[in-house]
């Protein structure tokens, strides 16, 4: 007897959905010995939003140039 093609398609789809569900449930386990180690990992994976540099760019353009300290003026004169 020939299998019903629609039933076969249904089974295949169920199979794929099950495999996908399993893949989604498969998670990466991370283990840390101490709180600061975990925080360090989190910090390393937290990028700085590029908007901050853009905003600083605008803010610095409005700022007067910072005064140069006496010792830096002194050193630059010697060079």
């Amino acid at each position: 007897m020939k299998p019903d093609p629609s039933k076969l398609r249904q089974q295949t789809r169920e199979h794929e959905e099950h495999a996908l569900h399993q893949a989604q449930q498969k998670q990466t386990a991370l283990e840390f010995a101490a709180a600061e180690e975990m925080i360090r990992h989190d910090a390393a994976h937290t990028p700085v939003p590029p908007q901050i540099a853009e905003r600083l760019n605008e803010s610095l353009a409005r700022e007067p140039k910072p005064a140069v300290s006496w010792w830096r003026r002194l050193f630059s004169r010697g060079q």
Partner: peptide, 15 residues
């Protein structure tokens, strides 16, 4: 005991 976490994406929220 080591601190374990399964969902990497949820680590930040949990911290």
């Amino acid at each position: 005991n080591p601190l374990r976490v399964l969902e990497t994406k949820e680590l930040g929220q949990r911290i």
